[in-house]
């Protein structure tokens, strides 16, 4: 693990939007949360292409759609709870159905939001967006990957959702030899033969730690980072299933409808192998320190390692 300082993916996001935001077609909208979603970083650089829509998320989504009909690349921001949650019908019918070029960026996703508690801990945003035909769903794990995901998202023509986190997280991917970001392709961060841990977002770093712990016990765990949940890299997942014979998914999201469901769908229809899902087990969150919440909801490296051993035992 890198000695670099921790950076929240929302922070990396804001800096990347500024870095890749020179295209005059790009317009950013926020619903009074620019200082939290970090769209404020873009606003400072390009005030003429930044619009605060006030606390009115549904209208923000619709206005974004209207802007996009004129050829603009529109990026809208709020907490993942409200974007897509608060504006789901608008996202579906005004943005994704008409295939408009609108990017929805939900920050403060997952349980690690912490003290704000269950009303602000989005645990369904992946499920919601993944169910929309033609939607691209991104969930980067660290600063470097977020930067590359922002670039790819802006270059992609069509609707996208990206979830970012509030919590400062370790930097991983810049140190991994051969790491390469491509929309729709998973990244094998560590090779292994006994079991594969498929993780997204915050849980990628935890998966690597779990693989370290498993290695201490003589278990060789492969770690795949899925930054693009839709379209899912089925080829990479099926290869892992064939080669390691057991899969564990790890996500900071409800196990219903998220990464675990997406991976299970692919395996069941093509190459079923024993599989375990690590995630929030169909419950709402709670206020607390992120570290305490991660323990409470069983999202630690030890939980992932235990799930890996359980999946292996079912081979």
């Amino acid at each position: 693990m890198s000695e670099l300082k921790k950076i929240a993916t929302r922070q990396a996001y804001g800096e990347a939007l500024k870095e890749f935001g020179a295209d005059p077609r790009i317009v950013a909208l926020d619903a009074d949360l620019g200082k939290s979603t970090m769209s404020a970083i873009f606003a400072k650089e390009y005030p003429e292409r930044y619009i605060d829509m006030g606390i009115a998320e549904a209208n923000m989504a619709g206005v974004a759609a209207g802007l996009a009909t004129t050829g603009k690349i529109v990026v809208i921001h709020s907490f993942a709870m409200f974007a897509p949650g608060r504006m789901y019908d608008q996202v579906r019918n005004s943005i994704v159905f008409p295939r408009l070029n609108v990017k929805i960026v939900g920050s403060h996703a997952g349980i690690t939001v912490g003290q704000d508690g269950p009303t602000h801990q989005a645990l369904e945003d992946i499920s919601l967006t993944r169910a929309l035909p033609g939607m691209v769903v991104l969930s980067p794990c660290d600063a470097n990957e977020t930067r590359l995901a922002v670039k790819a998202m802006l270059e992609h023509e069509g609707p996208c959702y990206m979830r970012t986190g509030r919590l400062a997280v370790e930097q991983i991917t810049q140190d991994i030899p051969g790491y390469h970001f491509e929309l729709g392709k998973g990244c094998t961060l560590r090779d292994g033969n006994d079991v594969t841990i498929v993780a997204t977002g915050y849980m990628v770093a935890q998966a690597l730690k779990a693989a370290d712990a498993l290695a201490q016990e003589g278990i060789s765990a492969r770690v795949i980072d899925i930054h693009t949940i839709k379209p899912l890299d089925e080829e990479l997942l099926l290869k892992a299933a064939r080669e390691t014979g057991a899969i564990v998914t790890a996500e900071e999201h409800n196990i219903i409808g998220g990464l675990g469901s997406a991976v299970a769908e692919v395996l069941v229809e093509n190459y079923p192998v024993p599989m375990e899902r690590v995630g929030v087990r169909d419950t709402f969150g709670h206020s607390g320190e992120p570290a305490a919440l991660v323990e409470h909801y069983h999202l630690t490296p030890a939980d992932i390692a235990a799930a890996a051993k359980k999946a292996m035992s079912r081979k």
Binding site: A65, G66, L67, T69, D89, Q90, R92, S94, P98
Partner: peptide, 29 residues
């Protein structure tokens, strides 16, 4: 459906949404 019918400027149907899109178009102008 704006992608299917010539002359349709915005896909609508879910009530309340078209007005926001019109605001977006006017804002772009």
């Amino acid at each position: 459906d704006m992608n299917a019918v010539k002359g349709v400027d915005m896909s609508t149907g879910s009530l309340g949404q078209g007005f926001s899109a019109a605001v977006g178009m006017a804002l772009a102008g």
